Simulated assay, not measured.
Amino acid sequence: MTRHSLSLLIRNEPGALARIVVLFSSRGVEVESLSLGPAERGDLSRLDVVVDLQPGRTPDQLIKQLGRIVDVKNVVDRTHDEALERPA
């Protein structure tokens, strides 16, 4: 499995997080960590998630699938951002 850090902007709507988690579950994506908090705009939240993808799956595929969820406004792959890397 390969680990990826994603940052999403999602609408503050009932069921938004559930729809994202269902997508992860149905695609066999393991969630290693998840953090949800308010974004700059009051109608949006920021969801930071670290996921493990099965062999053959790319983060680009997952990002496109997440982008199809009506509550997801933006998805960024932050896997290689130095500020997010943790020492081993």
Rank of each mutant, 00 (worst) to 15 (best):
H4K: 06
R78P: 04
R68E: 15
A88T: 00
I20R: 09
I69H: 09
L23M: 11
L62E: 03
S25Q: 14
P38N: 14
K64F: 07
D81I: 04
F24G: 02
G67L: 02
V75I: 08
R68M: 15
V72P: 01
H80Y: 11
L36E: 06
G42W: 11
R11N: 12
V29N: 10
V72R: 06
L47C: 11
V75E: 01
D81M: 05
S35H: 14
N74F: 07
I10Q: 09
R86C: 01
L36F: 00
L84Y: 10
T2E: 15
A18C: 02
A16S: 15
I10N: 10
R19K: 15
S33C: 04
G67C: 04
N12A: 12
L34Q: 07
I63P: 02
V49I: 10
D71N: 10
M1N: 13
V49Y: 01
L17I: 11
S45E: 03
T79E: 07
L84G: 12
I10F: 09
I63M: 14
S26A: 11
S35W: 10
V21Y: 00
S45D: 09
R86S: 05
L62S: 03
A16G: 02
E85A: 13
Q61H: 12
Q61S: 14
I10C: 09
G28Y: 00
L9D: 09
R3D: 01
V72W: 11
I20N: 05
A39E: 08
D48R: 13
S26D: 14
Q54P: 09
T58Q: 11
V21S: 14
V72Q: 10
T79W: 09
L6N: 01
A88I: 05
P38D: 14
L23F: 01
L84V: 05
A83H: 06
Q61W: 13
V21H: 04
A16R: 06
S33V: 02
V70F: 15
D77L: 07
N12P: 03
L23S: 10
N12E: 12
R27E: 07
L34R: 02
E82A: 15
A39H: 08
T79S: 09
R78N: 15
Q61E: 15
E30W: 07
P59V: 00
R46L: 03
G67N: 13
L36D: 07
A39N: 04
E85Q: 15
D71L: 10
T2S: 15
H80M: 01
V49F: 02
L53I: 06
S7T: 13
Q54N: 08
I20W: 00
Q54I: 04
